[in-house]
Design a protein around this nucleic acid. Structure first.
Lengths: 194, 194
DNA sequence: CGTACCATTGATCAGGTTCAATGCTCGTGG
DNA sequence: CCACGAGCATTGAACCTGATCAATGGTACG
């Protein structure tokens, strides 16, 4: 994938940017490949980029007080990602974002995004709608965590995002689900029997 | 509290609206008192208002397939509330929002908010920042649910929002924490012994 | 005064955690 | 090219916490 292939036909809908503003947007994007195990963002550093996964997989995680990695999210093809807390508030990141495999990304620098916001009504609205979408998505995850068992969450993940099971070690999926690797192993066993 | 007391000195910071735009904002607000047990929003209806609690308490909840109420959130003094999903997407609400006690609220109609958004850059930015703040808050709740036990969540709630324990029946607090009333009762007992 | 609802408590159960041991796989160096 | 080691998944056993079902007690409201 080269940047010339990032055209309106294929990416307009995904970026949620209209034809008039599409080039203005993509001109600000920088291509990069993050090698497997490399970091997009490390603990303590401020996150200056909004990222978009063209092809590959990344993972955001914390390290708990006990030194255990706690996966917060996975980032797959055609999704934006960043540490929004650090990015929006200019604060040092409490999480890491790491490539699970070699991953092609597009990067938009915070300064460029802010310039867009300042520049035109359209971009301000774009920013609002993006934030609203992300907000509604996190509301869904809250409902999930509040009202469904780990087993149900596993089955749902399996259904909605089966591809990540090929790419991501099980222990990371376990902490994403809020359980231990052992429990995930037993849940799988339990399900396979029924 | 009458609307004349909603002045910039006291509410500018809370609304996150600057002096220049403050009156424009408050002119759109309608005062209302929601009596205890009355609904601000019912299942199946579309949510047309953004609300703000001047004084009182409301509760958002679902009714699960088994017919059990699942509290999603509590809304207390000086906080905005609505069912954002229904409000933003114009869809029938899956949740109820009910007054826990007699509650004074200010209401902003969706149409008026959209007019503000259309009208001026300032309001578009206001909307974006609001959405970003809400998003970051829900991220925090996800972390909470993922990585902390019900007991820890209870202790945290007790510390950060002790007042709601006076106002809200324990069974609603239990489902907000993601547990049954019996378990909450036992957690309290366990804690009091230590 | 009675009823209805809620909190508490008891008993039992189910699912997730922890600690420990074993087995598997993949990548590396001899 | 094979052997080894590291890291991960699996499994076992004991434990803990929260769920469920059922009974009791307390309280507020009609």
């Amino acid at each position: 994938m080269t940047k010339s292939e990032i055209n309106f036909e294929n990416y307009g809908k995904i970026f949620k940017v209209d034809k008039v503003h599409f080039d203005e947007f993509t001109n600000l994007l920088k291509e990069k490949t993050i090698q497997k195990s490399e970091y997009f963002l490390e603990f303590g550093k401020t996150c200056n980029h909004l990222g978009f996964v063209v092809n590959g997989t990344l993972r955001s995680f914390y390290i708990s007080e006990e030194g255990v990695e706690k996966s917060f999210n996975f980032h797959t093809n055609n999704h934006f990602f960043t540490n929004y807390e650090s990015f929006l508030q200019n604060t040092p990141s409490k999480m890491f974002i790491q490539a699970v495999e070699n991953t092609e990304v597009l990067l938009l620098h915070k300064i460029d995004l802010k310039k867009l916001f300042k520049k035109e009504f359209y971009w301000q609205e774009f920013g609002r709608i993006m934030a609203e979408i992300m907000f509604l998505e996190s509301q869904k995850r809250i409902e999930d965590l509040l009202y469904f068992s780990p087993e149900k969450r596993y089955l749902e993940l399996l259904e909605k995002n089966p591809n990540i099971f090929q790419k991501i070690p099980q222990k990371h999926i376990a902490s994403y689900l809020g359980i231990t690797p052992q429990s995930l192993s037993r849940i799988k066993k339990r399900i396979s029997k029924s």
